[in-house]
Amino acid sequence: MAEDYPAGGARPRRRGRKLLIGLIVLLLVVAGLLVVADRVAVGVAERTIADRVGQEIAKQGAQAATPDVEVAGTPFLTQVLDGRYQRITINLRDVRTSVEGDAVQLPVLDVTARNVRASLDTLRTGQGDIIADTVNGAGTISYDSLAALLNRPGLKLGEQNGKLAVTAPVDILGQKLTVAGTADVTVADNGAVALRFNDLDAAGLPNLPLARALVNNYAKGISIDVPLPDLPFQLTVREVRPLPEGLAVTVDAKDVPINSVG
């Protein structure tokens, strides 16, 4: 014989608990879907920016691997609705361009754009500007491409104790010698990289004023201002310093259309 349950008894409580559990599960599913949608939207934005940057690099006559773009900040969808993004990082690899016909290689160029403004329609259609209040970056110029610009047979560049070091074969008064020394590296007023080799020497150099004068003349001949290629994102070089992997440059810019690098 079935047992009767009074009002407010155990069975209604069990049903109430089931309803509460079901509601919690539903909320978790909805939250999960929102997270997935948020991540999907991030992916779409990152691909859009990467495509535009890649197109503009090609228009500039340069080459680079596909840009790696990361849009920071969560949730992303609220940033979309607001049209402002906390931070966008663009990593460029194997950038190749030319200066006066000679190839210049930047193995690494990492750029961070902050307080970025982009409308939803721009992200959806790929049309319109994506403007960053500030852009900061760091890159390297390979020593091989820098040495090619100096155009001295056998000349090699590298880093030594935080300075730009050079070695090169020379012919001094009929003797085959190797000059070596370091250079001061600064940013010139025109944005070029200024190389000043002030202290070169050579083992076995004859102790003659003419021999010393020839070495000094060689140092002056490679002490030049190296013009850099047009950098993407309207970046301006602020600092240059030698590292083991290449000549490192620190760059920045303000109010930059990051999807228009020319």
Rank of each mutant, 00 (worst) to 15 (best):
P169M: 04
V193Y: 04
G139H: 06
L123T: 04
A168H: 03
S223D: 10
A165D: 03
K220R: 15
A165F: 07
R212E: 14
G137N: 04
A203W: 09
K163R: 13
N198P: 00
A180F: 13
V193E: 04
R212Y: 10
Y143T: 05
L208T: 15
A148R: 11
T134F: 12
L200Q: 13
N161W: 03
P232N: 10
I130P: 01
L173N: 10
P209K: 05
L200D: 13
I224G: 00
T140I: 03
P153E: 07
T178W: 05
I222V: 13
D144M: 01
D201N: 12
N198I: 01
G181M: 04
A118M: 11
L214S: 13
D171K: 11
D225H: 11
D133C: 07
A118P: 07
S223L: 11
N161L: 10
G221T: 10
V226K: 05
A188F: 09
G158H: 02
T122M: 08
N198Q: 12
Q234S: 15
I222A: 11
V166N: 03
V193W: 06
R196Y: 12
D171P: 00
S142V: 09
D121N: 12
A203E: 15
D189T: 10
A148P: 01
L210D: 13
S223N: 10
F197K: 08
A168P: 01
V135I: 08
D199V: 06
L177W: 06
D199N: 15
N161V: 06
Y218Q: 11
Q234T: 12
P229F: 10
V179I: 10
T125R: 08
T167I: 06
G181Q: 04
P169H: 06
N217W: 00
G181L: 05
D225A: 13
R196C: 00
K163I: 00
L123P: 09
N190T: 04
P209A: 02
L205F: 05
R124A: 15
N198E: 11
A192I: 09
G181E: 03
Y218L: 14
G154S: 05
Y143N: 06
T236K: 15
D171S: 13
D201M: 02
D184W: 01
R152W: 09
A188N: 12
A165G: 03
D133G: 11
L231V: 07
V116E: 10
T182C: 02
D129F: 00
L205R: 05
S119K: 05
T125Q: 07
V116A: 06
A180W: 08
D189A: 15
L173Q: 15
A168V: 09
